[in-house]
Design a binder for these strands. Structure first.
Lengths: 239, 239
DNA sequence: ATGCATTTGTTCGTATGTATC
DNA sequence: AGATACATACGAACAAATGCA
């Protein structure tokens, strides 16, 4: 077993145990070096690996050592990104995933939401409405906030994270096609309507129905970018 | 931008473009060093990062440099593992995900399978049956093979990979509770019956029904390990 | 605002262990 | 068995960035 790997797994272990909390700092490279009885290069290789896994961050000149970071979905997002590129995942694959997961999250939200949750969602839609024809960046921020709020209600962290990651990848894949297209205003109006429909379905409390409305909404939004056969497969998810 | 990061992204880029195919080798560290105009340590830090991301593997003594690896879901599995540990995901979260995804894969299989696919599934079940009361390792190998074969039929790479990863994490979480429990033989018999039911549903060609049978099968298998409230939430996925 | 101490980023030279020919 | 090529690992050094007095 290689020297730097031992260091990596020891520090990883400490972080997982909660022994090293986010915001805490490792000691300096020179301290770690004597602490683990290895050379500085070895310490640095270990730090580079931890850094690339999103566990720590180190910057030159900082007095205390590398900082322990809070968990971030970024490594997961990266894995999925490379999966998209290397395995040649298509828009269809991603949309399928989103319809499946986000629809389910809406179903959970319909079944388990509280009063306050509905208010949060309403505010997101209002912010979207306000930004129509105006600020397309504020619009998409409110859009993302809506989806995240829906996901939070359901409360399954795994679904939430996966869905966020895939949503990000979808945007990457077709950013140019939609955000900057012509008739941008119309499309934004359209999106507001669809979000309202999803909101109503969630408020209605019927999980099956909310799932379906959400999936149909995603389907319609992206259908134009998909082939006939792909659309047929996606329809399997609609009842 | 740091020196080693430039190297990492250049090599990553070459791999993504397919310029560096799996099985090909990088040149030796000394060559890379002069090629990129950096020192040995910097090259090594870059290699460590690439290695931890599952893109290359380097071993001492090998004549040519580091080997380019085929894509593997291992980094993704790692991200999910750390998500499970750090975010304290429970068995419920994982089972929810599996019911959702694997049920859908069964639905796809029901709708799109071919003759040959059914034969593959049959053979997996036969291998399971043969290993009952005998070889528990062969049993679980056949079990995994069945699920992978089902997933392949549906053909959505993203779902397949996510499902495999989550299945692996589930086994980690409760390996002790089931595999080594008492009445192991009975449980294996039971599993064979459930797999047959899933198989019949797939052959039947009704996607909705196959989805349901599969989800119910997973639900029943794990229900005993879950609380009342968790079970109620999972039931939302059954129609 | 300046200068000093500390720390990281990077380089270089060297020694050691290991696989292949 | 020996030679070669390679990766692993060490330690000293300098530059650049940061924080503090």
């Amino acid at each position: 077993v290689r020297a730097y790997e031992a260091i990596v797994s020891q520090i990883e272990e400490a972080i997982r145990r909660g022994d090293l909390q986010p915001g805490a700092r490792l000691t300096s490279e020179r301290d770690l070096m004597s602490q683990f009885g290895v050379s500085r290069s070895t310490v640095r290789e270990a730090l580079r690996v931890l850094e690339s896994n999103g566990l720590v961050r180190s910057r030159p000149g900082e007095q205390r050592g590398a900082e322990i970071l809070a968990f971030s979905a970024e490594p997961l997002a990266q894995s999925i990104r490379s999966l998209v590129q290397i395995e040649r995942l298509t828009l269809y694959d991603l949309i399928f995933f989103r319809m499946l997961v986000e629809g389910t999250l809406c179903g959970l939200a319909a079944a388990f939401h509280k009063r306050a949750d509905l208010q949060v969602l309403t505010r997101c839609i209002e912010r979207m409405q306000a930004a129509v024809h105006e600020d397309s960046q504020a619009f998409s921020l409110a859009d993302v906030a809506f989806h995240e709020a829906v996901a939070e209600i359901g409360g399954n962290r795994l679904l939430i994270v996966c869905n966020e990651v895939v949503r990000g990848n979808v945007s990457n894949l077709i950013a140019d096609k939609i955000a900057s297209g012509e008739r941008r205003g119309e499309k934004m109006e359209d999106a507001v309507l669809r979000h309202r429909a999803v909101y109503d379905a969630i408020r209605g409390g019927d999980a099956q129905n909310a799932t379906n409305v959400s999936r149909a909404s995603i389907y319609e939004y992206y259908a134009a970018h998909l082939s006939r056969g792909e659309r047929d497969r996606l329809k399997l998810l609609l009842t």
